[in-house]
Amino acid sequence: MITEIALTVGVIISLIIGLFFTGVAGIGLLKLDNAMSRLHAPTKAGTVGIGAFLMASVLHSFLLGQGSFHEFLILGFLFITAPISANFMAKVNLHRQNCTPPPAPPRDDMWATLNVPEADRELADPQELA
């Protein structure tokens, strides 16, 4: 009885955390005014929200008496791949110049995604150089 009550309270707390963070992610994606700020909202808060929902699913499976941990596989996969895809989308924003460019690197000539290096100029599409 006491474990059932504890598991139900855990499911309720996880669901509340998850819906809060998912709602924050949706509002941030819609309301923020900068491309990089919009990138920031769902890739962090949304991932935490879905992690809390998966946590609620694990606790609820124990509540039903058929406990299993395999939702943690999805959780680990999401937590590993979310920063990678966020990094790729930040590189897309840099490439399309939708944000203020980063400061010049200390030694190298230019950032890899912003410009075509001097050695590859004749290989590049002349439209992109303009």
């Binding site: 491309a35 919009r38 990138l39 769902p42 890739t43 949304g46 989308m89 924003n93 939708n98």
Partner: peptide, 9 residues
């Protein structure tokens, strides 16, 4: 970038 981000979300 916003469209890719929206699809990912």
């Amino acid at each position: 970038g916003d469209r890719i981000l929206a699809l990912d979300t």
